[in-house]
Amino acid sequence: MLIAALRKELLLQWRTRGQFMAVFVFGAAALLLFSFAIGPDASALRTFSAGFLWLGLLLSSTLTLAESFHAEMENRALEGLLLLPSDPRALYYAKAIANWLQLAILGVALVPVMVVLYDAGTMRLWTLLLVIALGTAGLSAPGTLYAAMTAQLKAKQTLLPLLLFPLIVPALLASVKATSYVILGDPMGQARPWIVLLGAFDLIYWSLCGLLYGRVVED
């Protein structure tokens, strides 16, 4: 069931890939604008590059997450899906994994933009990839759950960030710290505890949100 639901989500995302491009452009534009907030100070931009990358990703994520339940809201498709003889948790995990993949790809796509704009290159690409994967997983799990609530409401574009932003503070903090160490150099191995914290955050929210999802969509 999880596989079938995941296939449906990925197919949906593939068919709306134009929207993904738009979100990527939004994220890149945000990265460009952040540099105007600091001014043309190359060393300051490099210092803050990790924070800007994650803020850009966070702002973009509210767009993709809010839209991710768009198809389910049409013609009461969500109710139809819930009538299937399967666990609603499979629907949640499929949606969350699809959102995670989308955000992770977005994060990877924004890295070259960051490198060019802020001169923030790094050779530790695998660690960076790991941090992006764990960080976007932390955004996606609670984000998907809250998107399931707010998609049914009129003020979804306002409410989703309002609910999500305070919650993901630890994930944001840990991602920014770890990315920062990857970019600026990490002689003391300080990135490691932040990556562990990020992993713990993911573990807690991927299990807790899956547990609670059934109650959110029930009628």
């Binding site: 503070v169 630890p170 903090l173 807690i204 929210y205 807790l208 609670l212 109650r215």
Partner: peptide
């Protein structure tokens, strides 16, 4: 649901900060 999620977050926020 949102209250439970936010309460679980409180210790994590505390220790991360």
């Amino acid at each position: 649901v949102a209250t439970i999620i936010a309460s679980v977050d409180l210790p994590i926020i505390y220790f991360s900060v």
